[in-house]
Amino acid sequence: MSDSQPNVQRFIDALPHACDLGLQAEPGCGGGVARMSMPYDPKIVGDPRSGVIHGGAVSALMDTCSGAAVLSHPDYVGATATLDLRIDYMRPATPGQTIHARAECYHVTRSVAFVRVTAHDDLSDPPVASGHGAFTMTHGAKS
């Protein structure tokens, strides 16, 4: 797998909400796989009593990571946008811990890319959240 971490970071840097969340590309990106992290920040806590990060911030991480996976796919030829993203939240993220996401673009058609994504903190099982989605794929991609 080629490491497309710099390309993924450029994608993140072009998205104001991703910058505000502190998203960072991680090593191991390329070939339809993207990895990124979101550091713990009190600004994105959803419940001040527990210190748990808001689910909306987790979903933004997972959506951005999924889009980056499409962009890193060998059949990618243009722009992408989220058509559908279903996220199942398995447990609250542990307060104070960075959340890491890994997305894989596992199938593409002429116009749609299909992605699986998970988010973890320092505990690997169960994940904080798991999801799958469909993203636009510019016409011209291999089927």
Rank of each mutant, 00 (worst) to 15 (best):
Ala69Ser: 15
Arg49Trp: 05
Gly51Asn: 10
Gly22Met: 08
His120Gly: 00
Pro27Gly: 13
Val117Leu: 02
Tyr89Phe: 15
Cys105Gln: 05
Glu26Asn: 14
Ile87Asn: 03
Gly67Ala: 15
Ser59Met: 15
Val77Tyr: 02
Arg102Tyr: 02
Leu85Arg: 05
Thr64Gly: 03
Pro126Asp: 09
Leu61Trp: 02
Ser37Asn: 01
Asp63Ile: 04
Val58Cys: 03
His100Ala: 13
Gly22Ile: 08
Met36Trp: 03
Gly67Val: 08
Gln97Gly: 02
Pro42Thr: 12
Ala60Leu: 11
Ala81Thr: 14
Ala103His: 03
Leu123Gly: 10
Gly67Pro: 11
Arg49Val: 13
Gln97Ile: 00
Val112Cys: 05
Ala79Leu: 13
Asp122Thr: 13
Tyr89Trp: 02
Ile87Val: 15
Lys43Leu: 05
Leu23Ser: 01
Ala69Met: 09
Gln24Gly: 08
Arg35Met: 09
Pro39Asn: 06
Ala101His: 03
Asp88Trp: 03
Ala81Asp: 10
Asp121Asn: 10
Asp20Glu: 11
Leu71Ser: 10
Leu85Glu: 01
Ser37Leu: 13
Asp122Pro: 03
Arg116Asn: 15
Leu85Gly: 07
Ile99Cys: 00
Ala93Gln: 04
Met38Gly: 00
Pro92Ile: 09
Asp63Ser: 14
Pro92Leu: 06
Gly46Ser: 07
Ile53Thr: 14
Cys105Glu: 02
Val58Ala: 01
Ile44Glu: 00
Thr82Leu: 02
Gln24Ile: 13
Ser50Ala: 12
Ala60Thr: 15
Asp20Val: 05
Ala25Cys: 04
Asp47Arg: 14
Tyr76Trp: 14
Arg86Lys: 15
Pro92Thr: 08
Gly28Thr: 04
His120Phe: 08
Asp41Ser: 12
Leu85Pro: 06
Thr98Pro: 01
Ala81Tyr: 03
Asp41Ala: 09
Asp88Gly: 06
Gly56Gln: 07
Met62Val: 05
Tyr40Ser: 03
Pro95His: 13
Lys43His: 07
Ser124Glu: 15
Glu26Asp: 15
Glu26Val: 10
Leu83Cys: 07
Thr82Asp: 04
Ala79Cys: 05
Leu23Asn: 03
Ala34Met: 04
Leu123Met: 14
Asp122Cys: 07
Val70Gly: 11
Arg116Gln: 12
Ser37Gly: 06
Ile53Phe: 01
Ile87Glu: 02
Val117Ala: 03
Glu26Lys: 04
Val45Thr: 11
Thr109Gln: 10
His120Ser: 08
Asp88Cys: 02
Ala101Gly: 08
Gln24Arg: 14
Leu23Thr: 02
Leu123His: 10
Val58Gly: 01
Thr80Glu: 01
Tyr76Ile: 07
Ile53His: 01
Arg35Ser: 07
Ser72Pro: 08
His100Val: 15
Pro95Arg: 11
Ala119Gln: 06
Ala25Thr: 09
Tyr76Ala: 15
Ile53Gln: 04
Ala69Phe: 11
Ala57Pro: 06
His120Leu: 09
His100Met: 14
Ile87Trp: 06
Pro126Val: 01
Ile53Glu: 00
Ala79Phe: 10
Gly32Arg: 07
Leu123Asn: 12
Gly96Glu: 06
Pro27Gln: 14
Gln24Asn: 14
Ile87Phe: 03
Ala79Lys: 13
Cys105Trp: 04
Glu104Lys: 11
Ser111Leu: 12
Cys65Gly: 04
Met38Arg: 00
Tyr89Val: 08
Met36His: 09
Val77Lys: 12
Ala101Asn: 02
Ala60Phe: 02
Ser111Gly: 12
Ala119Asp: 04
Thr82Val: 10
Met38Leu: 13
Gly31Trp: 09
